[in-house]
Amino acid sequence: MLAIYLVYGPVMTGGALRNLDLNLLTTLDALLRERNVTRAAEQLQLSQPAVSAALRRLRRHFHDELLYRTGNRYELTPLAELLREPASTALAGVVRVFEAVPAFDPATATREFTVLVSDYAAMVAADELVQVIGEQAPGVRLRLRQQVAAHVDQAPESLRAVDGMFLPHGFLSGVPSIDVFTDDWVLIVSRDNTDVGDTVTLERLAEMPWVVTYHAPTAFTPAVRQLRLLGIDPDVRVVVESFLPVPFMVAGTPRIALLQRRIADRLATAAGVRILPCPWDVVHLAEAFWWHPTHHGDPAHQWLRSALRAFPRADTEGATS
């Protein structure tokens, strides 16, 4: 467990931060995630009275209950809900500070890398990264965190607390990246959909019911946006916040969807869908790995980037590192 006490210089000696120790941050993070004193104590490997005492200190500090009982369970107060992501981000940043090393030897390192991924990136890119890590750095662990729209919308801040994010080009700018691989988009329909042949026209696409992913102003599928620019406004019937369920939402229905070819090829048989070509010059998907500039000189992070560059299917032309 992290046991570090904050000591402030002249600028930080006053106010509410005086004499706070960093263990309160680890306890706060555990309590906000577990919503239970007992489970938080188990996770932190502390006694329940010790965590209860820390919760009392946190309540005094924030002038808020943070956790309150409803029946047999605890709920978070509105302030506690607001604190969940900042507490997790702050703790991850502190851990990164104390994990810093002057050199990185993958053969003996025991570091954990945390990467934000969609289910698509986990299936394609992270799967290869796990293999590379297993071969070169057997003691290193990869933690994959589910990527949500807020991570992209607040990219500079969210990237501070992790080692990077897999995301296609077109969403981020101003932060370094490495191109990892390319993919293209295909259409999928149910295998038993006899109304659609081996091809489909743009006009037919405008008539069909659609399954789409991330249907929001800042969270979208680039190929669907391109389709709208061509004057085709899909009749959206189902919105899914991930990619892997899409084929199963199409199977056995008259629906149609756009999907990355790498996923479609893997899941078509199991899901019971057919793959069709897009009837327009669809934009290619260029998946990249993005990181915060503060990680640039970290020897461990430099090794991670070199592992990404070594992907057999990587296309690193145009990488900005």
Rank of each mutant, 00 (worst) to 15 (best):
Q136S: 15
Q136M: 07
F104Q: 07
L129G: 00
L129F: 02
A87G: 01
Q136I: 08
G71R: 11
L76A: 11
F104D: 08
M123I: 03
E85M: 12
E81F: 07
T108C: 09
E81T: 10
L76C: 13
A137W: 04
P86N: 01
A87N: 04
A87C: 05
A122P: 01
L83W: 05
T110E: 04
L76K: 08
L129Q: 02
T89W: 08
V117Q: 08
A122C: 04
R96Q: 14
V101F: 02
S118G: 14
G71F: 07
A100M: 03
T89D: 12
Y74I: 02
V97N: 11
D127E: 11
V101H: 09
S118C: 11
A103E: 11
A103F: 06
Q131N: 10
R96T: 02
A92P: 05
V115T: 08
R96I: 03
A121T: 06
P78D: 15
A103K: 08
G71D: 08
E85Y: 11
G93Q: 14
A100P: 05
R69E: 15
L91S: 01
P86L: 02
A125L: 08
G134N: 12
Q131D: 13
T89Q: 14
T89E: 13
F98Y: 12
L82K: 15
L91C: 00
D119R: 00
A126W: 03
L83P: 01
E99N: 15
V132S: 06
A103S: 15
V132T: 12
T70V: 15
T114W: 00
R84E: 09
F98M: 11
M123L: 09
F104Y: 13
A121H: 06
P106E: 06
M123N: 09
D119N: 05
V97T: 13
T89P: 02
R73C: 00
R84A: 08
T114L: 05
V130N: 07
T114P: 12
A92K: 09
A122I: 03
L79R: 12
R84L: 14
L76T: 09
Y74T: 02
V132I: 14
L83R: 06
E128V: 03
P78A: 15
D127V: 00
P106T: 08
T114R: 13
V101I: 10
V95R: 05
